[in-house]
């Protein structure tokens, strides 16, 4: 499968609520130690569902390589 050119990125003010976990079609997100959401860059396809649902608005979709 072709690698997506986009990737989700989580900001520092993540509240670790887990809303993004429920909508990720690839299961590419997990909550690290109850502190922040973490994206598995290998699995993320940059679809943006997590960014749309994030209640804190701290997830952005970036070009791969730009902010990794």
């Amino acid at each position: 499968m072709a690698v997506s050119l986009k990737l989700a990125q989580v900001g520092r003010e993540c509240v670790a609520c887990g809303s993004c976990l429920r909508v990720c079609p690839r299961g590419a997100i997990h909550i690290r130690s109850g502190v922040t959401a973490q994206i598995d860059s290998g699995a993320c396809v940059g679809c943006g569902r997590c960014a749309k649902i994030c209640p804190a608005d701290v997830i952005t979709i970036v070009q791969r390589g730009a902010g990794e």
């Binding site: 509240v15 109850g34 649902i53 209640p55």
Partner: peptide, 19 residues
Amino acid sequence: RPRSWCVYCPMGTMTQGIC
């Protein structure tokens, strides 16, 4: 957004602080 409460929920703030 639907779960905006989660952002400032006192329980969420406390549990994140503990973590």
